[in-house]
């Protein structure tokens, strides 16, 4: 092995500092959420207890955290499934030329770069003027999709840019129909990326704030609930909540990564038998 240049150590320390910068604050509130009952929002720790976590599970004076969590969870799954299905379909469509494809592409880009508050405002206005009630499962759902679907589409572009077309041609040569080619060749090959799209869909929805603000109606999603708490809660209970929902996010991420890893294992075991013939 070649010796590492001095720049390696400089850059490695920079990287370490960056990671500390990324995770340090979150770890701090995780630590502070174990404050004693008399503890405040900052150090020093005033004893160590689970007081603030217990507080979360008891009857809430402010808001409805568990209801909000349940709604965010359901909405996250709705957005996740729609995002996966929608972006795979759109990704397949964009592999061919079709009238309006460039308009649709630029619309998707616009959807990504448009300030979120405009979606919130516009959807809210339409619902009000049409006399519909805004609700997290209708207007909130649609507004979140304007952020997750284009993201999923970009991932699908990345996937199909790297896709080896000869697999499809081989399948067709073997007599597979168009549908069979998609179902038994294309989808299995891109499935790890689909897990990635699902992860994006779920987590972006679960944490979405700006696009849901004016479109969730009278029942808050969890991020809205947490934001409401920041204005009137001055105890570490908010850190406890932050720690729990971050832990939940980490579990979700871990689960998805685990599935991708399992798929990779299976693939290397059952995938190709090249070189094993004799």
């Amino acid at each position: 092995m070649e010796q590492r240049p001095r720049s390696f150590y400089v850059l490695a320390s920079f990287f370490g500092l960056f990671i500390l910068f990324l995770y340090g604050p979150t770890l701090t509130i995780a630590l502070l959420s174990f404050q004693g009952p008399q503890g405040g929002l900052t150090f020093p720790m005033n004893g160590v207890s689970l007081y603030w976590f217990r507080d979360l599970f008891e009857q809430q004076a402010v808001g409805d955290i568990w209801g909000a969590f349940r709604r965010s969870l359901i909405l996250g799954f709705m957005v996740m499934i729609t995002t996966v299905v929608g972006s795979v379909m759109a990704g397949l469509a964009f592999r061919k030329r079709f009238a309006g494809s460039s308009v649709l592409f630029y619309l998707a880009i616009t959807s990504l770069v448009i300030p979120s508050i405009l979606i919130s405002l516009g959807v809210g206005l339409i619902f009000n003027q049409l006399g519909f009630r805004v609700h997290w499962a209708t207007s909130g759902f649609g507004s979140q999709l304007t952020w997750t679907l284009p993201f999923g589409l970009l991932i699908m572009f990345a996937v199909f840019n790297r896709f080896d077309k000869s697999y499809e041609e081989a399948a067709r040569d073997q007599g597979a129909s168009a549908w069979q080619t998609i179902r038994f060749v294309v989808v299995p090959i891109i499935s790890p990326s689909l897990i990635g799209v699902a992860l994006f869909g779920f987590t972006l929805s679960y944490d979405e704030f700006a696009r849901t603000l004016l479109t969730a109606g009278s029942y808050n999603t969890l991020p809205l609930e947490i934001f409401g708490m920041t204005t009137n809660v001055t105890t570490p209970v908010i850190y406890a909540l932050g720690t729990l929902t971050t832990l939940f996010s980490l579990c979700v991420i871990g689960f998805f990564l685990f599935v991708v890893w399992i798929l990779g294992k299976r693939r290397s075991r059952f995938g190709s038998d090249a070189g094993k013939g004799l």
Binding site: V85, F98, A99, I114, G122, L125, T146
Partner: peptide, 28 residues
């Protein structure tokens, strides 16, 4: 037949973007 399938594939994205991006911008 092929064009129709392609459009159907693009339909979910199109519908969402028309309803929740284009219409809100027009409304604003």
């Amino acid at each position: 037949h092929r064009t129709l399938i392609t459009w159907l594939q693009a339909a979910p994205l199109t519908v969402i973007l028309l309803g929740f991006l284009v219409a809100p911008i027009i409304m604003i």
